[in-house]
Amino acid sequence: MDLFAQILVNGVLLGGLYAVMALGLALVWGVLNIVNLAHGAFIMLGAYLSWHLYTYLGIDPFLGLPITAILMFCLGYAVQRGLLNLIVRAPMFNTLLITFGLEVVLTYLAQIAFSADFRTINPSYAGAHISLGPLVIPLARLMAFGVAIVLTVGMWVFLLRTRLGRAIRATAQNLVAARLYGVEPRHLYAMTFGIGIGLAGAAGGLYGTVSQINPYIGATLTAKSFAIAIIGGLENPLGVIVGGLVLGIIESLTVAYVGATFGDVASFGVLVLVLIVRPSGILGKTA
């Protein structure tokens, strides 16, 4: 029983991190209708950025997250303005091609710049943990989970309550009406993509505190983010939390009880199941 509880805790902590990884992908997908295959590569860049800030400037990975997020936001804004605005609203195939190309380029640039060696961000509290009865909760993972929840809920409040958030939702729902009411789409798309990439950067920084980083982690993270976005639905950031938790818990359980190699099988099995039973996501409305 204790073991099961511990696995559940691990799954929940992992799920929070997964949620923030998927948040930016879901936002960009929902508003721009671009499935950004380079999303995981941006997470990877965020992780390296955080690693450099910590290793060379001594900035704590958690305190450095805002810096990582802001720099990645700027990169995202520029990529959308200079590249992706060319293909926004183009057929899905074009957007897949161009973002896949971007993923390949970013991965190999990272390999040239950072080498293929594994890196870890190891602050002094990396090995620390909190004991709750029989349960062991690693401090870094708990902090990453906390930041992930704050970011996701913050995103939800931003979309619901702010002027820019409202315009982003409006543009996702009805582009023609949004343009008629004064939304300048190229800027709005770039802001949206920037926010998505900023979140990816923050997710990367968190990932670096709990896991090893190398230039090739992007593709898997894209696939997981994609699964979470589908499980949670694109309408509501809180759905992404649900999707992240579902995936995190299922992966932890599968790894513990079936075998480490079956983790991804279970995740994507759930994805297929959700697509069959509730194509609009767990929290999504049924048509």
Binding site: R163, R166, A167, A170, A178, L180, Y181, G182, E235
Partner: peptide, 24 residues
């Protein structure tokens, strides 16, 4: 300012959010 044919509301946003979009 145009009120378009077929209304073109932001259907999945509240009435108040729609009005606030008018003031964007």
């Amino acid at each position: 300012v145009q009120v378009p044919e077929g209304r073109q509301l932001f259907d999945r946003m509240t009435v108040e959010d729609n009005l606030l979009m008018g003031a964007y």
